[in-house]
């Protein structure tokens, strides 16, 4: 088990939020920033992991799972989310799919100057689609994940959680 300092966003906290909100499937594209979470998810017999090879597939997969009464979460990076615009529009928004997408906020920095265009366009992309989003940077922000699940369910729309843990743990 990896040790995490107080305040950091640990994979265990993210997992606890998923379990609390009844997540049944994790549709995701692995990347180095989420590897710690992967090990925990893989070890959990109650979670079904569905790996995709292009992020757009995650939205249509999640739509199908939702139609059948399951509760998927999408776990991708901001780069792949931007690649997925038409799938988000068609399979997410137009089918009223209440799915939370947890998005690794590559390039996010609260200190200094952003030098990564992946971060530059992330929130602009979400705003263009009218997708509500919540920034989660530390363990103290973790309850926002539940807020996102509640909002997705209530509005029957995709809602994003931007994982902006700048230096530690989940997003390193």
């Amino acid at each position: 088990m990896t040790q995490h300092a107080e305040g950091e966003l640990s994979p265990e906290v993210v997992m606890a939020e998923m379990k609390k909100n009844g997540v049944t499937h994790v549709v995701w594209l692995p990347d180095s920033e989420t590897n710690f979470l992967y090990l925990l998810m893989e070890a959990d017999p109650d979670l079904d992991l569905i790996p995709v090879s292009r992020e757009g597939q995650a939205f249509s997969t999640a739509a199908g799972l939702t139609v059948g009464g399951k509760k998927p979460v999408i776990l991708i990076q901001n780069t792949g989310m931007m690649e997925s615009g038409d799938s988000l529009r068609g399979w997410g928004l137009s089918l009223n799919i209440p799915v939370v997408m947890m998005v690794g906020y590559r390039g996010w920095t609260r200190h200094g100057v952003n030098t990564d265009t992946a971060a530059t366009y992330t929130e602009r992309f979400l705003n263009a689609f009218g997708i509500q989003y919540y920034l989660v940077e530390s363990g103290e922000d973790a309850p926002r994940i539940s807020v996102a699940f509640e909002e997705a369910s209530r509005t029957r729309r995709p809602v994003a959680v931007l994982v902006g843990d700048e230096y530690h743990g989940f997003n390193r």
Binding site: G56, S60, T61, A63, G64, L65, D86, S87, W91
Partner: peptide, 19 residues
């Protein structure tokens, strides 16, 4: 119909896994 081209296979997979 065609919500977004290219997604039917994954949609079908999701439906099959959920049911």
């Amino acid at each position: 119909g065609d919500p977004a081209m290219g997604g039917h296979a994954s949609f079908g997979l999701g439906v099959a896994l959920s049911l």
